[in-house]
Design a protein around this nucleic acid. Sequence first.
DNA 1: GCGGCAAATCATAGCGCTACGATTTATAAA
DNA 2: TTTATAAATCGTAGCGCTATGATTTGCCGC
Lengths: 350, 350
Amino acid sequence: MADHLKSGLERPQRRRRKMQSITMTDVAEHAKVSPSTVSLYLRRPEAVSASAGSAIAHAIDKLNYVPNLMAGGLAAASSRAVSIIVPSVRNAFFAETVSSMQTALRRERLQVILGHTEYDEREEEDLVRTALSWSPAAIVLTGLAHSDATRRMLSHSPVPVIEIWELGGPQIETAVGFHHAEVGAASARHLIQQGRQHLLYLGARMHEDQRARQRCDGFLAAAGEAGVSVDVMQHPAPASADVGAMLLSEAMQTRPLTDGVACSNDHIALGALFECERLGIAVPDRLAVMGFGDLSFSGACNPSLTTIRPSGDLIGKEAARLIIDHMAGREPPAQSVIDTRFTLLHRRSS
Amino acid sequence: MADHLKSGLERPQRRRRKMQSITMTDVAEHAKVSPSTVSLYLRRPEAVSASAGSAIAHAIDKLNYVPNLMAGGLAAASSRAVSIIVPSVRNAFFAETVSSMQTALRRERLQVILGHTEYDEREEEDLVRTALSWSPAAIVLTGLAHSDATRRMLSHSPVPVIEIWELGGPQIETAVGFHHAEVGAASARHLIQQGRQHLLYLGARMHEDQRARQRCDGFLAAAGEAGVSVDVMQHPAPASADVGAMLLSEAMQTRPLTDGVACSNDHIALGALFECERLGIAVPDRLAVMGFGDLSFSGACNPSLTTIRPSGDLIGKEAARLIIDHMAGREPPAQSVIDTRFTLLHRRSS
DNA sequence: GCGGCAAATCATAGCGCTACGATTTATAAA
DNA sequence: TTTATAAATCGTAGCGCTATGATTTGCCGC
């Protein structure tokens, strides 16, 4: 056993593996400084003298140096990546938030690593596990509902966690979003204020989308408090105009007195408007319709759709700000909450 | 100078930096094998014996080991990340492709790193530079138009490149998509077949979106060949129903003979339909309208919208397949092209 | 029991970079 | 000048993992 080779000149010709063409050492040689200085320049340019700085900048430029972020991340035990985990980017809400975060993070040279849960907690858990293996600068999760394992992993890790798009439940660290129950309540109050007495909530995918469910619950509660008749109809499929049309058509048969509907989503509301048109139901005279989301078509349709605009952009921007602040050492108070609010847009459909 | 410390027992008490709680070495100790075997098990489970495998699996489970992907990536000079660069995920087309890629890649434990160019070649160049510094398993770009620097960087790197959503131009390596000019031509032919003689193309953001421009060019060419009158109207803003309504309203004033319009996008077409309704223009009797995209509302609106469905999902799926095949050593032929085609959906608006 | 071979396992040498502490150089005070 | 102090720069030791080639083990026929 124990037969180490003597460490003399005899070298077991173990050839080096594939290498990156240009490394920091090359830049350092070219700029006639040490690698440490190059590294320092890259991380904190102001800590390096102007002359060394420009020599390094030239060398980088000339050699077309691309730093190896994995080596850097390994050495620093943290990377310039932010993991964003959302149910799906097919959903315009989350696409908006992801997009605005990406824009804000890019300015700080932070990368976005994206994951989709498809509303599955198990999937989320797996995504979080993988995310952690990148030692990201932060992890962004959608909503406040997570599996126990997910919570455990995150609270045992040093990675900052931000939960977005939902407030009002137990949070891991920081949360940025708004209260969905309040959205529902605001919808109910608006319809009642318009003189509606027989309310109906049309929802899609509420078994999975717990925020849609919260909006529904808020709607029911506010309507109940006001002593107005109220009911719910739902469909398990993801929100779409087809589902909205289907639900409305069925609603008008089974609940003919209905004079005000709120939808879990503008897609549903749009479908409802289309169906009203086909059925000859006057909106808003006979039936008031409102949605949630203020999607791209909501202001343009006939009649224009009363809806509630969540600040998806703002959520992304604020989440990004928190991450950037954290990296700069400006910690927010623990368990802090940023309420981005929402806006009711009263248009022609109510 | 040159005063190295003797390498005796005297140790400058340089304490180790922050460390990851559980490393592969811990797992190896627990499973009573060497770290190499653990690494091998993680990468090629079939290469270790069943007994060692299960011991390792137990240890991983018990210790709750999370591998450090950056260390792995550094050592292997390639990571399990795929960089996807699209104009924006706010655009439903790209959101769909990103989403379907992410789903397919996840099964192979590949991460998606997302970047948005906002239709800016300079931004794209920057994103590609950053992407390369992660040594990704592949880089996915949107379209075939890139800056020279981008092309140079990519062709000098060993990272496979896939261009999506566009065919028909000079490509870097592999391309997955369809011919946009053919989409335009198909639209024109369809309208002509429906007896329309005064065609109009409504486009948004065509100065930036070169694929929208190609569709427009294809439309003009096919209409011209058929000897039919044809014109174009455009707006620089991103596609939306508002823009569509605005363009249609203007069109009917300045080009009152128009009896068939094709839009660069279903959002535009939807806005056009809304405006027709407001103006009392009968669709399709007086005016045929068609779009592009088959977005979620397109089948549900009044009248339902004739449109062309690009296979955004399929593009993502095929691109993911190429990446996975590449990693498994199954190379596609160089400069290969996957044409995902498109489908014309003839509905009520034409 | 012994070679002969394949299967399984291991030890080692980095991958390219950053953090740390030490060293050198510039600047101010004595 | 000398000394104290700050600013700039540097040398070194890993970060946790994988690729490589070497070694060990298991299994066969003889």
